[in-house]
Design a protein around this nucleic acid. Structure first.
Length: 424
RNA sequence: GUGGCUGUGGCGCAGUGGUAGCGCACCUGAUUGUGGCUCAGGUGGUCGUGGGUUCAAAUCCCAUCAGCCACCCCA
């Protein structure tokens, strides 16, 4: 029988890599907390209709990458989908629990696994983890800037270098659809000369033609109508204000009119964090933007909303490449208890709960016979101290404590052991 | 989803037609209560899986699964 492997595009995160994950998730929680985001947990799956209505049919995430699922007794109407992103679920929760009646703004964050039925590659998994922040209840530019500042603070605190913020504005949905029509008008006569992909995009999602890498398309890009010229004065003012915040906070950014995010619900500000030095790789660490239209679209009231999602798997891989985790250490037990004989064994058994109750971490291997074997195990366990007890020590109410790094050994009374290990 | 490359013990690799080897790791031992070094010994693989060609396949062919690269897309 063949051994079962983890499903395609999924992986195990082994103990050695856990300190990195803990460091990154802890940094995320702290940063979010400092900026007044409150934690929320949402289900791993939702009614599939939620994603169809929010992300939008016609996007790859919905048409090609959704993990559909249903219970064995479910009816046809009850089709669920593993969440492919965070925003839809959080917005659903916002509406369902009437959060528009809470003091505004409502700022929420979550660290969650999301699922996409993709063809896997490094930095592209079928299950990956995102750090997601959502800011509700403000239509002004300050909220956009606040969200960007949050992602910036997080990435910056990790100590990442080569970060680049790409910034764009998509205007209102009216402005955007007017612009899409202009694009279609421009590209339709060029049908035979642009890439097949772009011909398909022409009808489905014309804005996507803009970020094509195909040289056949790039040729016509310069003369194409520009989104920035299709925006009204209000949209311009909103965007200018966002940029001023970023400049005051010294967050460097690059305007990128080609930036079009893959989810349909964005309007006005859209941004994406990329990291240089990973040519051709999955360089996007995350992104977000404003999505005022989504709440009414899902039956909620019209409150402004801005969100961002950052890919923790990619961020951690980048950190590893940049040596950010070099200083993190694995967990080490404070003491490894060694029994030299039967009397020592009894003493060790009694000592274990005592040390645990005192908040210390311990290890022991009472199934091993010789002291040598136990000492060897103590060294392998990376323990700071070996605490050795035999009949002699037990009688006197003492223990031998050996520093496993310096090899120095001394005698300590059992009563003082806890404070000795703590202070050392 | 499209095209390509790769797949040998836990990890990293060698072996390209004649019935699998190295390093690391792991286990045991080097006298009775002391580890990390060294030395000696040992466990572990039907060579991703399934089929085919051949007297004979890890080595050739096909399929399949998985990983990786590019595209698509995105985190």
């Amino acid at each position: 029988m063949n051994p079962i492997q983890s499903p395609r595009g999924t992986r195990d995160i082994l103990p050695d890599r856990q300190p990195a994950w803990q460091y990154v998730t802890e940094t995320a929680r702290q940063t979010a907390g400092q900026l007044s985001f409150r934690p929320i947990t949402i289900p791993s799956y939702e009614e599939a209709a939620l994603f169809h209505r929010s992300i939008g049919d016609g996007t790859d995430i919905i048409d090609k990458e959704l993990f559909l699922t249903r219970g064995i007794r479910s009816t046809e109407e009850e089709t669920y989908a593993l969440r492919p992103e965070a925003t839809a679920g959080v917005v659903r929760a916002f509406i369902q629990h009437g959060m528009h009646t809470w003091p505004q703004p409502v700022r929420l964050y979550t660290i969650l696994n999301v699922f996409r039925y993709d063809r896997p590659q490094k930095g592209r998994y079928r299950e990956h983890t995102q750090f997601d922040v959502e800011y509700f209840g403000d239509t002004g530019p300050f909220a956009d800037a606040w969200v960007i500042f949050t992602t910036w603070s997080f990435l910056n605190r990790l100590g990442l270098s080569g970060l680049e913020l790409q910034l764009n504005t998509l205007g209102t949905s009216v402005e955007r659809s007017r612009y899409a029509a202009q694009l279609q008008e421009y590209f339709r006569p060029l049908r035979d000369r642009i890439s097949e992909d772009s011909v398909a995009r022409l009808e489905k999602n014309p804005l996507r033609i803009l970020d094509s890498k195909d040289p056949r398309d790039k040729e016509f890009m310069d003369a194409a109508p520009r989104l920035s010229e299709a925006l009204g004065p209000e949209s311009q003012a909103h965007f200018d204000a966002v940029r001023q915040y970023l400049e005051k906070w010294r967050i460097p950014y690059r305007l990128n009119e080609q930036l079009v995010r893959g989810l349909d619900y964005y309007s006005h500000t859209a941004f994406e964090w990329t990291v240089s030095g990973q040519e051709g790789q999955q360089s996007s660490l995350g992104g977000g933007g404003r999505y005022d239209g989504l709440l009414p679209q899902l039956g909620g009231s019209t409150v402004g909303a801005v969100g961002a999602g950052l890919g923790l798997d990619r961020i951690i891989e980048t950190c590893e490449q940049q040596g950010v985790f070099d200083r993190l250490t694995q967990h080490r037990p404070d003491a490894y208890l060694v029994a030299a004989d039967t009397a020592g064994k009894t003493a060790v058994i009694e000592l274990i709960p005592e040390l645990i109750a005192a908040g210390l971490s311990v290890d022991a291997g009472l199934d091993k016979d010789s002291v040598g074997a136990q000492m060897k195990a103590a060294a392998k366990s990376q323990s700071r101290w070996a605490v050795i007890i035999g009949a002699t020590e037990a009688e006197r109410g003492e223990v031998a404590v050996k520093d496993l790094e310096s090899s120095e050994q001394r005698t300590v009374s059992q009563a003082e052991l806890v404070s000795f290990l703590r202070d050392a």
